[in-house]
């Protein structure tokens, strides 16, 4: 059993995950009241922060117990650790299949709502912050792996567009769970939107973003827990199916055209000046 031996050699990593995870679970969900609502802190957030603080790349001084060997091994383990979580979400969708079908049109079309990133982020990036072609990669999508693949394929990751998408990707990886926990807490406690709509929108990102988002939602609206999990899970599954194509055929062409029609003109003008 080479696989077993390999994992047992990583006992430091698994032990640290158990200890930090248990501490995080014991702290439990905490509410921070704010004027308009409340922000929810979830055990998964504490677990991430505590683990990051023991990571030798983040805190070089503490890099005694967890070494580079464990860091390298941890990356593929995230993929495996998220699998039971996805399976659990699947088991919430089946019993709620009638709810899902009833919400079908909304579920399908809310995928188009992902284009909202262009509406909000593109103007800020191009006109507010005067970013160059980085803005294309940064604002066309939520920058998870399929979207990285699109930019890598079209521009390579070393291009300005690649820098943009990588920047948002890394920020999402480091802070995505926090941002989603906060977004969901605030939207839910504002009490304007249908909880089903909030739940569907939780499925737009990665598994851990969905965890943070639904965790916060179910805490604010516990009476709808089953429905929230089912709709978020269904939306997330749909994102796997449609995300790549929506990014490739809709979002990226729109952002490219917008950029070329606006900031891109200046780029050409500057380039011409330099030549002249």
């Amino acid at each position: 059993m080479n696989a077993l031996r390999g994992q047992l050699e990583l006992w430091r990593l698994h032990l640290a995950v158990i200890v930090l995870g248990a501490i995080a679970e014991l702290i439990g969900i905490q509410k921070i009241p704010l004027g308009i609502g409340a922000i929810l802190l979830l055990p998964l957030l504490y677990a991430f922060v505590m683990a990051a603080l023991m990571n030798p790349n983040v805190m070089p001084k503490f890099g005694k117990f967890i070494r580079q060997k464990e860091v390298a091994a941890a990356s593929p383990l995230i993929v495996i650790a998220i699998m039971p979580f996805i399976a659990k979400f699947g088991t919430t969708i089946g019993p709620a299949i009638e709810t899902i079908i009833a919400a079908g049109p909304a579920l399908l079309l809310q995928e188009l709502g992902n284009l909202g990133t262009i509406v909000l982020a593109f103007p800020l990036a191009v006109w507010g912050l005067k970013m160059g072609r980085e803005a294309i990669g940064a604002t066309f999508s939520i920058a998870r792996e399929p979207n990285l693949a699109i930019i890598a394929d079209r521009y390579t990751l070393k291009s300005p567009e690649g820098t943009g998408v990588m920047g948002v990707y890394v920020i999402g990886t480091l802070f995505g769970t926090f941002i989603f926990a906060i977004l969901a807490s605030l939207f839910a406690s504002a009490d304007i939107f249908d909880p089903r709509a909030l739940a569907m929108a939780c499925g737009i990102g990665s598994g851990s973003m969905m965890a943070a988002c639904t965790g916060a939602l179910t805490e604010v609206i516990p009476s709808m827990k089953d429905e929230i999990l089912a709709l978020a899970g269904a939306s997330n599954l749909l994102t796997y199916a449609t995300g790549l194509y929506a990014g490739l055929f809709i979002a990226l062409p729109i952002v490219e055209k917008l950029y070329n029609a606006t900031a891109g003109k200046n780029d050409i003008a500057t380039a011409n000046k330099k030549e002249a």
């Binding site: 480091l174 598994g207 851990s208």
Partner: peptide, 13 residues
């Protein structure tokens, strides 16, 4: 189930 996944993620930075 999400808690350990995020702990691994913290160690993987």
């Amino acid at each position: 189930l999400a808690t350990p996944a995020l702990a691994y993620a913290g160690f993987a930075i």
